[in-house]
């Protein structure tokens, strides 16, 4: 009984019936909640992938413009400024900070760019000539980097969401597949689930199914016990009636015999009849029932 497939190993009692009922309800609610969470995350995920695609395109354009403005600088300065720039870079002026965004209980970090005031490593760059071009180039590149940072946060969100969605989906499926002793079977089921629309082939929701099975089993078992008990009581009362009837008949017979004897002896029947009566009751022991409750 307890080793049966698709059933929790519990005894059929009222208490475990109540427990199973609560568990079944919990499983149903949990399953639907997880499913909704997974759907919400997937929606967000799709949106993010779309935005990544867009941002990547935008990045291409922005970087092209930035590269062009750098070419302008080299032309204006009349030489290579790369080395000078690399050597004078000391403190980052352009920094990012991360803040959190909550999507259905998942924290997605978002980078936010800000400029550290009072840091200027390139104060003297382009002092001779091309200062204006360099200024413009810096602004262009700052805008480009902002786009890049935006893209970076989208990408991070993408990676985290990807991972979280996998975990949530695994849990949703686990609610159906748990207790399937065969891992291969479980993976086959989940594979089928993905391929086949649910209205075509309804695959079992393992945990819920198990709980429902247990609930029904316990219910029928309890009903059975009830019926058994009722039948037993009926039997007992039948037997009691039969015994009572037999006892009554015997008493009547005893009385008749006493009356007969009295008639034969000619003695008054009152004194005689009193004697055998307690004797018969003692022998049968049935009269006790009338006085003793237990």
């Amino acid at each position: 009984m307890s080793g049966a497939v698709g059933r929790e190993p519990v005894f059929p009692t009222r208490q475990s019936l109540g427990l199973m009922k609560a568990k079944l309800k919990g499983a149903e609610v949990g399953h639907s909640l997880l499913k909704r969470k997974s759907e919400a995350l997937t929606k967000r995920f799709r949106e993010i992938t779309r935005r990544i695609d867009e941002a990547k395109q935008k990045m291409g354009r922005v970087m092209q413009i930035a590269a062009f403005s750098l070419a302008e600088v080299s032309y204006a300065v009349g030489g290579d400024i790369g080395y000078q720039i690399q050597e004078s870079a000391k403190q980052a002026r352009f920094r990012v900070r991360a803040k959190n965004e909550n999507v259905s209980g998942v924290y997605l970090p978002q980078f936010e760019s800000y400029t550290e005031e009072g840091v200027n490593d390139f104060g003297l760059t382009g002092l001779g000539k091309g200062g204006q071009q360099i200024q413009r180039c810096r602004e262009t590149y700052a805008r480009a980097v902002e786009t890049l940072v935006e893209l970076a946060s989208l990408q991070t969100a993408f990676l985290i969401l990807d991972e979280v969605i996998k975990v949530v989906n695994r849990r949703v499926n686990a609610m159906r597949m748990a207790e399937s002793t065969n891992v291969y079977e479980a993976s086959m089921l989940s594979f089928l689930e993905q391929r086949i629309p649910s209205n075509v082939c309804n695959l079992p929701y393992r945990i819920e199914q198990d709980l429902a099975n247990t609930y029904q089993d316990i219910n029928s078992e309890l009903d059975e016990l009830d019926r058994e008990e009722f039948y037993r009581l009926k039997k007992v009362s039948n037997k009691k009636q039969r015994d009572n009837a037999a006892a009554d008949a015997e008493i009547l017979a005893a009385r008749e015999r006493a009356a007969e004897k009295a008639a034969q002896n000619g003695t008054p029947p009152v004194a005689e009849s009193k004697e055998p009566e307690p004797e018969t009751t003692d022998v049968l022991g049935e009269q006790e029932d009338n006085d003793v409750i237990f």
């Binding site: 403005s69 790369g82 690399q86 403190q91 840091v119 590149y141 700052a142 940072v149």
Partner: peptide, 20 residues
């Protein structure tokens, strides 16, 4: 931010002020 790239890309991004 960190950058690995050719000279032009690095120069441009450093001009934006990411160098540290």
């Amino acid at each position: 931010l960190a950058v690995i790239g050719d000279e032009d890309s690095v120069t441009g991004l450093l001009l934006a002020g990411i160098g540290h």
